[in-house]
Design a protein around this nucleic acid. Structure first.
Length: 322
RNA sequence: GGUGGGAUACCCAAGCGGCCAACGGGGGCAGACUGUAAAUCUGCUGGCUUAUGCCUACACUGGUUCGAAUCCAGUUCCCACCA
């Protein structure tokens, strides 16, 4: 089979639905490799709190985009797209299928729909803009790019900062730059990407999240965080906001007790899972698969998917075969 | 047993005669999102044939008043101190 015709799979869903286990099983059955779509697993060192695949898992199936950058570096959707493109061609050269699996909606979208030709964030400029009062930034935006000013979420500092940042960096208004698509996003051309999103009943998902968080603390999340803090975690804008680490940092500083922190992490993780579902529900083309409470449901899904993979031309998602 | 403080919507908490279905925060629900996204931001959150309307509501009972979550009396429960 020609590399380009090898199927690519997209598996998504909220944290702790069980997507990784399915991706792993799928990869083994079809001889595929996994491309992690996770904004935090890219960081070296963020292991326990990101539920990173274990060394054993990684020995079973080759994983990409995990541990690719240092704790002291920044990361963004554009870098994800670039690295994912390299990973996919690498995988296909080997005659294998790429299985994208993760929960970062923006990265899925950036990959499937492409990004615009605009410059990356500039740490120094960004710091300056973030220190500027929002009304001042809005004035500048209104003066230099009326269209963006009118369409942007003016109450969200992040959006405003980025818009002004691009305008200053390029010396041009942002709106025209946002009309052109970046080429090179593989799915941009085909438009065929259809993301399979796994979901579970709320009570079920919540129980799984709670169990996972308990397991993380039992596995030494607090110790890992302490270690990472001496390695620069506190200085990393992105990694420091990771669920679990963020709350544990506060705990380590003495702001909160352990039991309370564990409960908080469970809650924040649950809220995050809800946001993920909202994102996939509205922002991407998706097929949904329910994973019910009993374990039999999972194996049923596995069997149903597994039996289809021998089929030629098996396509752009798992769901089509269920 | 005595004295003082307190009981407000799912939780915390403001209000202390009308502008109160009741500030604020949390939680919940819904939503936005194109280079920080496990981030950031928004709306709604007593009930009702969704209305410048009605009903039910601020521990309970009764009272004062044109009018009470707000004042008075009694009751119950909580907390603190004294015995």
């Amino acid at each position: 089979m020609k590399p380009e015709s090898l199927p690519v799979f997209y598996l998504a869903g909220p944290t702790a639905v069980g997507k990784s286990a399915i991706a792993l099983a799928l990869a083994e059955q079809i001889g595929g490799e996994i491309v992690s779509v996770d904004s935090m697993q890219v960081y070296r060192g963020l292991d326990i709190g990101t539920a990173k695949p274990t060394p054993a898992d990684r020995a079973r199936v080759r994983h990409h985009l995990i541990d690719v950058i240092d704790l002291t570096s920044g990361f963004d959707a554009s870098q994800f797209v670039r690295l994912a493109a390299a990973a996919v061609s690498d995988i296909q050269t080997r005659g294998r299928s790429a299985i994208f699996c993760g929960g970062t909606g923006l990265y899925f979208k950036a990959w499937c729909e492409g990004l615009h030709e605009i410059p990356p964030g500039d740490p120094q400029l960004r710091a300056e803009l973030e220190a500027t009062p929002l009304p001042v930034l809005l004035d500048e935006l209104a003066a230099r790019d009326r269209t963006t000013f009118e369409t942007i979420d003016r109450r969200n500092p992040r959006r405003v900062v980025r818009a002004v940042e691009v305008i200053r960096l390029t010396g041009k208004p942002l709106s025209p730059q946002r009309t052109q698509r970046r080429t090179g996003a593989p799915e941009d051309q085909t438009g065929a990407a259809r993301i399979v999103v796994f979901r579970r009943a709320p009570d079920d998902l919540r129980a799984r999240i709670n169990a996972r968080v308990d397991a993380m603390f039992a596995a030494g999340l607090v110790e890992e965080t302490r270690r990472l803090l001496t390695a620069g975690l506190g200085e990393n804008r992105t990694a420091m906001q990771a669920l679990g680490y963020r709350q544990v940092i506060e705990h380590v500083r003495g702001e909160r007790g352990l039991a309370e922190t564990i409960a908080l992490v469970k809650l924040k993780t649950w809220q995050f899972a809800r946001r993920q579902v909202t994102w996939f529900r509205h922002q991407t083309r998706t097929r949904w698969i329910d994973l019910e409470t009993p374990d039999e449901a999972m194996s049923r899904v596995l069997h149903a998917t597994g039996s289809a993979f021998g089929m030629p031309g098996s396509g752009w998602g798992v769901a089509g075969f269920l």
